[in-house]
């Protein structure tokens, strides 16, 4: 047979006090505070905090741009370390190729494609041969790494 004191004691233990600290195994107050502080978080949280608000923050882990002028094809540049499987890569720029029919020389844009991409290097190659009077041009690549 429980008396009123036992019942009040059980309620205090289970519900707790509004000043209880966050604790996943604590009272109801402590559990609620744990969810608010450590699971939901606030607008200042970043992705690494692993809270809901942190996950709603930017999905971008790192960003970089590399500008270069190839002197060969394929051509490799060094990048700051990324997880290549989680990256978006934007490549811009072209070389100038030429061809001749004997009387005239015709010029065309020789575009590059990404022929290799590792965690620390980006390799590009030409889609067409430049021929002797061609120029390799200047390229820029922007690499956006996501979490």
């Amino acid at each position: 047979m429980f008396g009123i004191e036992e019942i009040l004691s059980w309620i205090r233990r289970q519900v707790g006090l509004r000043t209880d600290t966050a604790d996943a195994a604590g009272s109801l107050h402590a559990k609620v505070k744990n969810v608010a502080d450590n699971k939901i978080g606030d607008s200042a949280d970043v992705r690494a905090d692993n809270t809901v608000m942190g996950w709603l923050a930017t999905k971008v882990k790192s960003w970089q741009r590399v500008t270069f002028s190839p002197d060969n094809s394929p051509y490799t540049v060094n990048i700051t370390s990324v997880t290549s499987s989680k990256c978006l890569v934007f490549l811009n720029g072209a070389g100038r190729g030429s061809t001749s029919d004997g009387s005239y020389t015709y010029y065309f844009a020789a575009h590059y494609y990404i022929s290799g991409f590792t965690n620390t290097q980006l390799t590009v190659a030409l889609s067409y041969s430049l021929a002797s009077s061609g120029t390799y041009g200047i390229l820029s690549a922007i690499i956006v790494e996501l979490y």
Partner: peptide, 10 residues
């Protein structure tokens, strides 16, 4: 040979 700009932790 190349110019790099990066927001990174490296």
């Amino acid at each position: 040979l190349q110019i790099n700009e990066a927001y990174t932790t490296e």
